[in-house]
Design a protein around this nucleic acid. Sequence first.
RNA 1: GGUCUCGUAGCUCAGCUGGAUAGAGCAUCUGCCUUCUAAGCAGAGGGUCUCAGGUUCGAAUCCUGACGGGAUCACCA
Length: 615
Amino acid sequence: MKKIHDIIEDLHRHVHVVLTRLSDQPIEINELVITPCKKEFAKDFTLVLFGLAKKLRKNPEVLGDELGKALMENQSIQSYEVIKGFLNFSLPDQFWIDLVNSLQGNSVEEQIKLDKTYKYLIEYCSPNTNKPLHLGHVRNILLGWSVYLIQKSLGHEVFTTQVINDRGIAICKSMLAWTKFGEGQTPESTGIKSDHFVGDYYVLFETKFREEYLTWQNSEEGKLAFENSKKADESEADFYKRFKNEYFSKISPLGQEASEMLRQWERGDEAIISLWSRMNQWVYDGFEKTQNLLGVSFDFSYYESQTYLLGKDLIQQGLDKGVFQKSEDGAVFVDLTDAGLDKKFLLRSDGTSIYITQDLGTATQRHLNHGADRYIYIVADEQDYHFQVLFEILRRLEVPFSDGLYHLNYGMVELPTGRMKSREGTVVDADDLINEVIREASVMAQERGELENLSKEDKDKVISQIGLSALKYQLLKVHPKKRMIFDPTESVDLQGNTGPYIMNAYVRIQSILRKTENLEKSQPNLILQEEKDLLNLLIHYPKAIQEAGHSLDPSQLANYVYQMAKDFHKYYHDVRILNAETQEAKLWRLNLIGIFSNYLSHGMSCLGIEMPDRM
RNA sequence: GGUCUCGUAGCUCAGCUGGAUAGAGCAUCUGCCUUCUAAGCAGAGGGUCUCAGGUUCGAAUCCUGACGGGAUCACCA
């Protein structure tokens, strides 16, 4: 059974043969630019002539005319029209019949599968364990999951992973606050979602610490510090802002306690480790609930507590190879200035490892464990520099997988009011956001009343699918690399360029199909222009999703699916399907929309969006 | 200050491997539900594609520069 790809290639070949006959110059088949014709010219396809005309030293319009005539004689095309440098042409019925056969005879997956596939490992989400997930994580999660789904549907072998930062001073702050002020409370006893429960103690620590710092600032000691250590012209406020870290590590009783806790953790103190495990488990349980709500999962998890010591062997190798250097106090660094980067430290003078040491370690460890061809790190673009350095170092160490490393650096999410700041309480919490979009969907569904006959369970499921589609599509339709402004009130919009709009197109089709029985496959004897528009979108679907996969950019797929829904809504409005003029037309249209809905739901499913049958 | 990145309608965004008159949605205004789900369709208004040069038959798209936003430049993560 021919695939769409073959049919398009045939078309190019027909044009190429004729063109070669008209030309004294060799022309490559991939020099032909054939696109769908713009709607106002009422033809099926367009060949752009400028490039060819230049190469053949002919006037574009003359060339277009010659070409059109020859293709007509050949019966490759049905009609044509040359406008400026464009050859617009329509194809014979056989082309469309072949196409419909291809669509009926191959699944979407078969149509889009790539010949050459790879093994991917995709890292996404990668949370810290001191706070619940927020809007930034949601963008990350949805991107990662969609990239995963797209690659998988193209036939690649794909695995997902998250690196969990479960150690360090941050979690110790939560632990300390809980020890001091928690009075034995638990998520169960308070009924608070467990990751939020831990996050609340992190916030409590910060609050107590701020109070403590303020008290100190007003004490004799604090005032003295200001007088003695301030820079010329430095205001009191500026000084105390700058001094905060030093206060935390050298003076603050709370700071001392938290640091001591970290040291105890590193020594393996049993009581501390047990508290740490307990609180982290609360956080994981909470994360998992949120991730389940979003419908995502991971094949592997890496925990920093288990990987932070990795990388030291690599440092030694680097030193042996002469790629790294040792400074006088024993710290190890690498000089990357010749690559346009800076000097980067890799090991502290006391021999302990830092962030990048660990990343070097996990990178090699992962390659040992999974042996993928490509490693995709989905991490916000604030870490661009870090990844440039990381990848450059791995190249210099000549690790075998350095060509397969890719940082998908998505832009940060901002609110209409500006950046999210935890200190100002403007962070949009993931769970709150999810609940909010579902609540809004519920209100609207109530108004429409289409779900009245469903059981409570089915109804809730559909409502949650609608709400989530709004949120997911809203975040995925923007190009990943772009910093985006996220308006929570817009995310609950259900009209226009939104998830529910696309969903509605699918649901309308299902509603029609429910009203018919025994669909025979049928060939059209007449294809309306509106139907060719729909078919044209299906023709280009494989290319669209392949391009989205190639560039790791779900927004291309999102926008494509929107275009499909838009054209369908118009078709639905203009053309009668169940009450078609003839039985033949009805059968054909039912077939067409059935196929179309398969592609719609395929595209949406690759965005991680499930489609209900009614809404 | 160095490096990277972005600048398209009132707002949020497509388009960017150069092609026809720069597109959507929201918001504003006007029509269309006795006809397959109106979460829909049709229409109106809204643009110096930040600015200035350059390359080209042709530039929102490529190059250079300016201006404006953002990120980053720790023996932090």
